[in-house]
Design a protein around this nucleic acid. Sequence first.
DNA 1: CGGGAAATTGATGACTTTCAAGGTGTGTGG
DNA 2: CCACACACCTTGAAAGTCATCAATTTCCCG
Lengths: 244, 244
Amino acid sequence: MFMQNKPSNFINNTVKCESCSLVHVCLPSGLSSSEMSLLETSIDKTTKINKKETVFKANDEIEGIYAVKSGALKTSISNRDGQEQILEFHLPGDMLGFDAFNQGIHTCNATALEDTLLCKIPIETFDSLCEKLPGLRRELRHQVGKEIAHNQSLLLSLGQQQTDERLATFLLKMSDHYKSRGFSSNEFVIPMPRQDLSNYLGMAVETLSRIISRMTESGLIKMDRRVVSIMDLEKLQALAHSSC
Amino acid sequence: MFMQNKPSNFINNTVKCESCSLVHVCLPSGLSSSEMSLLETSIDKTTKINKKETVFKANDEIEGIYAVKSGALKTSISNRDGQEQILEFHLPGDMLGFDAFNQGIHTCNATALEDTLLCKIPIETFDSLCEKLPGLRRELRHQVGKEIAHNQSLLLSLGQQQTDERLATFLLKMSDHYKSRGFSSNEFVIPMPRQDLSNYLGMAVETLSRIISRMTESGLIKMDRRVVSIMDLEKLQALAHSSC
DNA sequence: CGGGAAATTGATGACTTTCAAGGTGTGTGG
DNA sequence: CCACACACCTTGAAAGTCATCAATTTCCCG
């Protein structure tokens, strides 16, 4: 059918960073091997979060920085009225926890979309390692820059695009993501239900469903539940107004 | 009438950080006096940007980190199709430039809304200072955290709120901002035209104008061009669904 | 004081949400 | 292994929100 998105170390959750299939996209990617081994001694690689459970919540004090090994998470914020906005989906290799950098308090919730394995670096350890390792500081900046860029891109989408353009943009981003990790860019499985995706894209679930139907009829895509097939890349790109 | 938003050092643009009226909100706020003086020697305090000119553009290589001394800027991104989204307005004391942290390349444009004075720290200097000064690293993280929090908040607004709720949220944020800097929270001047504000809030100019009219009729606010008066704080907060 | 940008207002139509109903798939317990 | 319950997803109809086009007014700058 199509490639699974599970990394090979799904079972062995204490694999070394240098042997981890995610090493090139994860925090250690820019570190020297000596830096990596120093970092490695401080990583708790045993954190498991069950589906629908949270890694942290808004107003929690920061405990650490996390990297997703397998599974998937969403981060979201809400206001007093209960309005909620999903900010980002975190796939294997993605980092999270930077939202607490301002006050040491998390501003968002991180919830598992499926059973998820994490690497955790306690914040104190992380801080002291940053003192010692210039490479880690650089990597931190890259990761933070990525997060800022992601937010900016989503703002553009929510602020200026129509609903169908938003979905097209999202699908192209996912396609690129999987492609960059060696998976198929035409067929992939997204980890979130319609409800979460529609919230992320700032529209009603029904609207999302209708768009999917329309885009399927037009021969742009197929979406069977969470299995996405991109049928006409060029048209999809034209719809998204971007090269991605 | 109401207090001007010009800091007292508008003319003297080479005032020392410790004497600057913005010291408590700017980068040096968490530094010791020795750290501050070390930082100070590396700051170029003479950068002046005229209205409608840019500090940097998307795809520019990062030159430095900036702090707004007086005036105001907007940062914005756009895609191939020319769709543009304003990401943030930067008022005196705000920092910018972190968007280039991922690749060393700016992802957004920074444009002056009015004649603006900036403090500039060349990126190489900034990097090497970060090596030496733990306090600066901490401050950097705070500033970056603030930026992330701002983006998250705007995402919630664009993704989940109606147009009038978005404006209410924005006005309350501005009110809080000026209040925290010792200005009136009921009457203040915003630095951007309707066009920019409507773009920022993800709506058409006409829609913004209509909302203002409606909210004026309801006795919530008054807005004479850029002069904002908050007439009924509680109703405004209720509309925004938040305490801010 | 005049020209032009900025802002407001009105009419219309497109897009999106909401409410409602029905369909599809999955997982669990008998 | 089947059946049922439930969550997830889709579709339809109606209503509401917002954008667009157009015209007008207001204000600012030279």
